[in-house]
């Protein structure tokens, strides 16, 4: 049923659960499994390039670690995990990537902003579900 699966991975508890589910589904349907991590919070209106570069370095180091762990977890299950790290707004970037990559399933964890923020603007997973071009599974 699913041939190309994308999982959002920000290293949170919700994302870990989503990864587990995505690996299971990839195994079950013999699907290709990809993961995307979004570098959110690039400082806007910076004074020097250095300020932006330092932020990116810290973010890259963080994502390198969580993605190494994710790859290892997938490998144990006999799945190859293809990884992408990209700067931008979380919802916009994941939706854009899912569209560009012609994925047929998007798996995300149920995590997001604070309760107040979530009530006003909707949580990250809610917004992804609304805008995604393909079927979405939100793992709780």
């Amino acid at each position: 049923m699913f041939k190309k699966i994308l999982v959002g991975n920000d290293g949170s508890e919700g994302a870990k659960k989503a990864l587990k589910t995505a690996i299971d589904l990839a195994k079950k349907y013999n699907a290709e499994l990809h993961s995307i991590s979004v570098e959110e919070g690039v400082p806007q209106y910076a004074a020097t390039i250095g300020e932006v570069e330092e932020f990116r370095k810290e973010a890259n180091d963080y994502f390198q670690k969580i993605n190494d762990d994710a790859k290892e977890e997938a490998k144990i299950a006999g799945i190859d995990l293809y990884i992408k790290v990209q700067a931008g707004h979380e919802v916009e970037t994941i939706v854009h990537y899912a569209k560009e990559g012609h994925f047929d399933l998007l798996v995300v964890g149920f995590m997001g902003h604070s309760k107040i923020f979530g009530r006003v603007w909707g949580s990250t997973s809610q917004n992804i579900t609304k805008l995604s071009p393909c079927t979405v599974i939100v793992v709780k």
Partner: peptide, 8 residues
């Protein structure tokens, strides 16, 4: 918190 540069 708000991802605006420290300078600004």
């Amino acid at each position: 918190r708000i991802a605006i540069s420290i300078a600004l």
